[in-house]
């Protein structure tokens, strides 16, 4: 078998990649720290966060408050912007020096870009897009749960011999832990050897998202092909419920909505308290992004649509007939509550 650059005997600790963008930690990094804390509890496994960037040590405390015992900070001007080359080289050196047993990364675009490259450089196994993580009772091996083909089966993946055992997890799969400002942890600054020639690519332009984060929404009103490009009622209901608008892939492909609102396998895994799903058939690539909702309402003209098998309250009707009275009924109910 392909041998990794170091073996299981030498390896220790769980490392979490603390992905930052323009000096802000991504939510999924904290979600992973929270989950890793849960995994290490009752076992004496150190939990280490790894920060790469330019003058980012200020973010370390946030990871410690979320549960990290230690944060290693690799600060370098050439790490100011994410590049595959720069981050892979710096991270590889950190890993070979520290020899983590487990390495967790968020499955963001750049997290996946880095994880895929790192895993091959380290000649190790990577379980992508896990929906759950646990440590095996007797061996302590990481077991990643992934949704198998078709969404109907779960597969459990292990990496017994190669190190680190790598896994990526999508944003929203785990909850962000409540920060504990009193937690103490070590912040260690590590040396970085990087030269301009190490980085083949050049970032010419970088534009951040507009800040819609549907993974944090408490209420989601979602629309699919059935809305025919008309999102007015969906917008109205969402704002009435202090929620966000989400969509299936079709409105994104059609240009009716931006990609940051897409729910599902290529979109986001969401965990709202309430999801109202209108004109969406319920393909599994969509459903994986909504199944963590506490309550799901489906409105669809087709009584046979798979979405109804995944919903708590089902309305077989035209969304354009149901939404206006629904908006009125919500207004009345809110009025009765004295509004909010």
């Amino acid at each position: 078998m392909t041998k990794s650059l170091y073996g299981a005997q030498e390896a220790s600790a769980i490392w979490v990649y603390l992905e930052q963008n323009q000096g802000r930690l991504t939510g999924v990094s904290l979600e992973l720290v929270g989950k890793a804390r849960e995994l290490t509890d009752g076992r004496s496994i150190p939990l280490v966060g790894v920060l790469l960037g330019d003058q980012v040590s200020g973010l370390a405390q946030e990871a410690i408050a979320a549960g990290a015992d230690e944060v290693r900070v690799a600060d370098h001007p050439l790490l100011r912007q994410y590049t595959t080359d720069g981050y892979t080289k710096a991270f590889t050196e950190l890993i070979l020096a520290g020899k983590p047993d487990i390495l967790l990364l968020g499955a963001t675009p750049n997290g996946r870009d880095l994880a895929g490259r790192l895993a091959v450089r380290l000649r190790t196994g990577l379980t992508a897009d896990c929906t759950d993580l646990r440590l095996e009772e007797d061996t302590g091996l990481l077991v990643g749960e992934v949704t198998g083909f078709g969404g109907g089966i779960l597969a459990y993946i292990k990496c017994p011999d190669n190190r680190p055992q790598m896994a990526t997890v999508r944003p929203g799969v785990f909850a962000v832990p409540a920060p504990d400002g009193a937690r103490q942890g070590k912040v260690v600054s590590v040396p970085v050897n990087l030269a301009k020639e190490d980085i083949k690519v050049q970032v010419l332009e970088h534009v951040d998202g507009q800040g819609v984060d549907i993974t944090r929404a408490q209420v989601l009103v979602a629309a699919g092909r059935g809305c025919q490009g008309d999102l007015a009622l969906i917008n109205e209901l969402a704002s009435l419920l202090d929620g966000e608008v989400g969509v299936s892939r079709v409105p994104v492909d059609e240009g009716w909505a931006s990609r940051d609102r897409m729910i599902g396998q290529t979109g986001y895994v969401t965990r709202p308290k309430l999801a109202i799903v209108c004109g969406i058939s319920g393909a599994f690539q969509f459903s994986v992004g909504i199944e963590k909702a506490e309550t799901i309402v489906a409105i669809n003209t087709d009584a046979e649509a798979p979405i109804f098998e995944q919903a708590d309250y089902c309305i077989v009707d035209d969304m354009f007939d149901v939404l206006p009275p629904l908006i009125e009924a919500v207004k009345r109910a809110r009025g009765g509550n004295g509004g909010r």
């Binding site: 392909t2 089966i153 597969a155 990496c159 017994p160």
Partner: peptide
């Protein structure tokens, strides 16, 4: 290096 250590039926969340 990775192995499939088992499969299970996804528990359809009780709706």
């Amino acid at each position: 290096p990775t192995i499939v250590d088992g499969v299970a039926q996804a528990e359809a969340s009780e709706r």
